[in-house]
């Protein structure tokens, strides 16, 4: 029986409604099935262009069927197909390349600027942490062993000689395996940064504690070197990668604080809405943090070992800091946020 014959013979109006439209539904189902299986290339241009139209037609068919048909099987089918094609029409459509371009072209710097307040909070927390570490160890050098995990450094301890300390900063380390070292440092630091962000979920308190602890360690180390008059050289040694790495950890902590703050004080929005708005913004910052940590790992693994004087290290470290600041403050300002 052809469609026309079936149509004229159908007793029920709702069956006629179905027979008139089912060719479109079946075509849409075919397109959707192929796209779900990742066989986009097998689709003709016509089919790809027809998808949004077919989808909207299907939605109107569904609305009509809900009001006019008691064929439960048909409504089930339309519901399921609508949901599947909805996900394709409103899916994660932007390709990775396009997303990446938008990310560097201003998405990242805008997200960083959007969490400015949290960056200031994180910065003051980090400075406070370093000062606390310094003061604690200055008051009682036993604090050093409490702050710095054992095995972290056998040479860099309170009371070490100037020669020994200078040796850790310059030259003596052989340059073997720098690449492996860099890769290891990167994955290690990235996990810490991810943790600092993810812990923000618990009202940001763990993020703040993590920042304080890490910076107290740094403050304690600074005191050890300051005792032997190596402050400038230590800062130089640290700055070549530290400006990038500490900046990245600062941003990760700020992202965590941003999320935690939005959950604790959502303002006029609902808690869930506030959390998801903040989370998406912070996720952009975090994607950038990972990239910064790759840079930091490379600088730490290669540049620090290869540039063996403080002036050169300050130059590279300062240059990197300038680069990040210019990008975050100046980039992507003129363009409006794309419609969310």
């Amino acid at each position: 029986m052809s469609t026309d014959q079936a149509l004229s013979a159908a007793v029920l109006r709702s069956d006629r409604f179905r027979l008139e439209r089912e060719a479109d539904w079946i075509r849409l189902e075919d397109i959707v099935s192929k796209m779900e299986k990742g066989k986009n290339r097998r689709l003709s241009d016509e089919d790809v262009l027809a998808l949004p139209t077919l989808y909207r037609t299907l939605l109107s068919s569904l609305s009509i069927a809900r009001e006019n048909s008691l064929d439960a099987g048909l409504i089930d089918y339309l519901e399921g197909l609508s949901l599947r094609s909805y996900f394709l029409v409103y899916g994660t459509q932007s390709s990775f390349g396009r997303w990446f371009a938008g990310f560097f072209g201003g998405g990242w710097s805008r997200a960083v600027r959007a969490i400015q307040l949290d960056i200031w909070i994180a910065l003051s927390v980090m400075i406070a942490g370093a000062v606390i570490g310094y003061i604690l160890v200055a008051g009682d050098s036993d604090w050093f062993y409490a702050l710095v995990p054992g095995g972290f450094s056998e040479v860099r301890v309170p009371g070490a000689s100037e020669e020994a300390l200078r040796g850790t900063l310059f030259g003596t380390e052989d340059s073997d395996g720098l690449g492996v070292f860099a890769a290891f440092l990167f994955s290690n630091n990235a996990q810490v940064a991810i943790l600092a962000f993810a812990l923000g979920f618990a009202f940001a308190i763990p993020s703040i504690l993590l920042l304080i602890h890490n910076m107290a360690l740094l403050g304690a180390m600074l005191w050890v070197f300051a005792q032997r008059g190596l402050t400038v050289d230590f800062v130089g040694w640290l700055s070549i990668h530290g400006t990038t790495e500490l900046f990245a950890i600062l941003l990760a902590g700020a992202a965590g604080i941003h999320v935690g703050r939005s959950i604790a004080f959502p303002g006029a929005r609902s808690h869930l809405k506030a959390a998801s708005d903040a989370g998406k913004r912070a996720a952009l910052v975090m994607a950038g943090v990972i990239i910064m940590l790759v840079c930091a790992g490379l600088l730490e693994g290669f540049a620090r070992q290869l540039i063996d004087n403080s002036a050169g290290r300050f130059g590279v470290g300062g240059g990197m800091l300038l680069l990040w600041l210019v990008y975050f403050i100046g980039f992507g300002r003129e363009r409006q946020r794309p419609g969310a």
């Binding site: 079936a6 089918y77 399921g80 949901l83 998801s276």
Partner: peptide, 24 residues
């Protein structure tokens, strides 16, 4: 919670035949 997402079940229903074809 942070991403504004949820996880839902997939649906895949086939279009059945007309329920009562013999009536026509």
């Amino acid at each position: 919670v942070i991403a504004g997402t949820w996880v839902i079940q997939n649906v895949k229903k086939n279009l059945g035949d007309i329920v009562a074809p013999s009536a026509a």
